[in-house]
Design a binder for these strands. Structure first.
Lengths: 142, 142
DNA sequence: GTACAGTACATGCACACGCATCTAATGCAA
DNA sequence: TTGCATTAGATGCGTGTGCATGTACTGTAC
């Protein structure tokens, strides 16, 4: 925003109104941008690889673990989903044979989620699509 | 990103790998940011005013129409939802008495969505919460 | 040891979503 | 006029979501 605009608004309205408008504008852009990228990702990954965005992101997290496994709670942070949704996400991935649940001996309340070979394969397969879609949707930015 | 980093990567890897990493990083930030803001908005608006984020945004669009009404299709763009979800959104708002559906004489396939007085009241009531939450969640940015 | 607060994940439930499809109205062409 | 492709919006259906709660385990206090 230009200093001129601030000045004008400071006379006609209050400066805080300007800040409010800017914030609103920022949120709308963030929101639109997110919807565009997420929507396209979901579509492309689904049609070409039968994966949802969150499925892909969970796999990516697992594949990038040196040990190839992590706690279910760690996935929650990555996918920005609730704990319950993450639990079901793991269940779906397991049903498709992309991950396995493993007992966590050090804390038997928790579980380890482990990528299978098939999981790695599907991830590597989908990765180019994912990156290309980001390229496509993020570079044409406002 | 620094020129130095670009240089190092251009030697060790390929320049396109750097671009890919940046794109990925940008998407993750966008995603995290959106989840944080949207989540907080949803929570605050719901607990204080019984409104969802999309309900609020639809009302905001309607209130800011000079005529106080617009086509259902116009709302679709604002809320970043599918056409069917928008249709149900309007149904929810109507059930709560915040909007009304009106016939569109010029094109009888379409409808007008009209804010009611109660709808305006609820919107104005929720607006400060909405703005305050944006302030709170957008200004602590990365 | 026992009791109890806290944590990790699973699950019942209500609800919102997208996709496909339906209905009704439009508009264009033969 | 009739016919047909197109468009606006509603709706059935399957599925994913969050919330609240349940179950199992941990750790701490006594």
């Amino acid at each position: 925003m230009s200093l001129h605009k601030i000045h004008v608004h400071a006379i006609l309205g209050r400066v805080s109104d300007v800040a409010e408008e800017d914030l609103l504008q920022e949120w709308r852009e963030l929101s639109a941008r997110h919807a565009a990228v997420f929507g396209r990702l979901e579509c492309r990954l689904q049609e070409r690889h039968g994966l949802g965005v969150t499925e892909f992101e969970a796999l990516e997290r697992l594949v990038n673990c040196v040990v190839g496994k992590c706690r279910a709670a760690d996935l929650t942070d990555v996918v920005h989903l609730s704990q319950s949704a993450t639990s079901r996400l793991v269940a779906r991935l397991e049903r498709e044979g992309l991950v396995q649940r493993a007992l966590c001996e050090s804390d038997r309340r928790g579980i380890f989620v482990v990528v299978t070979d098939e999981g790695r394969r599907r991830y590597e397969e989908a990765k180019p699509t994912h990156r290309a879609t980001l390229e496509e949707t993020l570079t044409v930015k406002a």
